[in-house]
Structure formats: C-alpha cells, structure tokens
C-alpha cells in the first residue's frame, strides 16, 4: 500500500479481500465438502467423512467413459492448438507479413464471439456436411476456441525476446530450419507449454460447445455433470467435480512453473 493509506482503508482492504476470496472460492469448497459427505443426498456442510462416492465414480461406466472422451479430445486439442497457434505466433511476431495486424485480429476473434453463437453454427454446418456429430467435430470446435489462448501466450512470450536473435543467427550461418529449431523454438517454448496447458484446460472444462455437439455415446465430463444436475444427483457428481478441480490445480501449478502466474494475469 502507498504510505499514507488511512487505517480504515487498510481494515476495509483486509475485510474486503477475505469476503471476496470466500465468495470466489465458496462453490469450489462446497463441492469438495459434498464429495466426502456420508449423506445419501447432496448437503452442505458435509456429514461425516467417506470416500465412497469416489469409488462409485471410478466404477461407474458413464463417468469413466465420459472421462476418457474428455481426455482424448483435450489431448488432441492441446497438440493441435499448440502446433497451429505456435506456428502462427512465430510468423506474426516477425511482422513481415502483409496485413499481419488483420491476421492476428482474425486469430484472436474466437475470444470475442460468444461460444453459444459459434456452437450453434458448428452444429448446423457439421450436420449439413457430415451428418451426425463425431468426436472430431468436438475436437475441431475446441481447437478453434483454444487457439487464441495459445496465440496470445506465445505472442506475449515472443514479444519479450530480443528481436535480433534470428538475424544474429543468420550472420552466424544458421539456415531456415536451424533458426526455427535452435533459436525460435527455445524462445517460444514457455509460451507453447503454458498455451498448451490452457488449451487442455479449456477443452477439458468446456461445456457450451460440448452441450450443443453431443449425441448418445459422445459425452464429455462437463456434459455428464450437467446432465446429472438437471435431475436429482447423488454426491458422486461432487466427487467427479472435485477430481476435475484437482486437475485444474495441477495444471495451474504447471503453468506457474513454466510461465509464472503473474504473467498469465496480464496476458
């Protein structure tokens, strides 16, 4: 705080931070609490402690197959978005392309358009051309949504590098592929890693597109959870949610290690 901050403002800040943190984290804590409750019904605060609901999730075909579907799609999306977005960011960072401003605006545009509009468009187009929805349709859709995040983190990382590295490498005899492999790739790596984990997280947690592009047998975890919530769920839905929260925390730690959380906040 700037010196000379009045004492009441300091107290207010502390109380405000505590309340806001509680508000932001409350739903997550509640879900975690419900997941270990002995009660047959969803209730909070939890009664007793049991890991029964986790067992139930792990032995449930519906949840396990949804988890596999989510995982495969998320991995595909991670690889596709990292490759496509990283390559585009390298080219855009060089600023030598005509209309590179327009191109980067285009690559970032899925951020601005509400997902529901895109989802309905994707459903209509895919049905018109290919007929029934397939996992590929969902993977492509998620890649489009995740792409801007990869492009943005990679561009932010590249913007911090010395713009003369590639030229210096040329004067030292590095050819086109050598420059990409030995100069550009090592520079963009943290952005690519962080962007890739973002892409995984986005695809794994995404609900809107997955709800539009679903058919029997193609259910991702968020869709499965949504379906349970529409009826009267038992605490196993909390157990699976808690596992997903845990995965998110792991991803956050990895992203912090590769790029730094402070950096993400400003991307």
């Amino acid at each position: 705080m700037v010196s000379g901050t009045p004492i009441w403002a300091r107290y207010f800040a502390v109380i405000f931070i505590v309340c806001t943190a509680l508000f932001l984290l409350a739903p997550l804590f509640v879900v975690m609490g419900v997941s270990v409750s002995e009660s047959q019904f969803i209730s909070f605060p939890p009664q007793g402690f049991t890991l029964h609901w986790y067992e139930k999730v792990l032995s449930s075909d519906a949840y396990v197959s949804a988890a596999w579907t989510s995982l495969w799609i998320a991995l595909t999306v991670t690889i596709a978005a990292s490759l496509i977005g990283g390559a585009a960011a390298i080219a855009l960072n060089r600023r030598s392309l005509p209309a590179s401003g327009l191109m980067s605006a285009a690559l970032l545009s899925p951020l601005v358009l509400p997902t529901i509009i895109y989802a309905i468009g994707m459903l209509l187009l895919w049905s018109a051309i290919f007929g029934p929805i397939s996992p590929l349709a969902l993977a492509i859709g998620h890649t489009v949504i995740a792409l801007p995040y990869v492009v943005r983190t990679c561009l932010a990382v590249l913007a911090d590098t010395d713009p003369f590295l590639e030229e210096a490498a040329r004067t030292m005899g590095a050819g086109r592929l050598q420059r990409l492999a030995f100069v550009v790739l090592p520079q963009i790596k943290p952005g690519l890693l962080a962007g890739g984990f973002f892409a995984f997280n986005i695809s794994f947690d995404e609900a809107v597109l997955s709800l539009f592009l679903r058919k029997p047998g193609l259910t991702t975890l968020p869709v499965q959870i949504y379906g349970q919530l529409e009826f009267s769920p038992d605490p196993s839905v909390a157990a699976v949610s808690t596992m997903m929260i845990g995965l998110t925390i792991v991803l956050l730690i990895i992203i912090d290690r590769t790029l730094g959380l402070g950096k993400i906040a400003s991307v």
Partner: peptide, 27 residues
C-alpha cells in the same frame, strides 16, 4: 547472410538466452 563469411555484433548483443556463454560462442 548465412552463406556469407561474416560475423556481426548487434547493438542488443543478441545473445541466445537459453544457451550458456560457451554454447553461445560455439553457436
């Protein structure tokens, strides 16, 4: 440039940040 027998020093030095000093000189 990569085919010319030259060496160039840049104003920003353009050292490769992911390499050690010796690896930079070896580059």
């Amino acid at each position: 440039p990569e085919k010319r027998d030259i060496a160039m020093m840049f104003q920003s030095y353009a050292l490769l940040p992911h390499l050690s000093v010796a690896e930079n000189v070896r580059f």
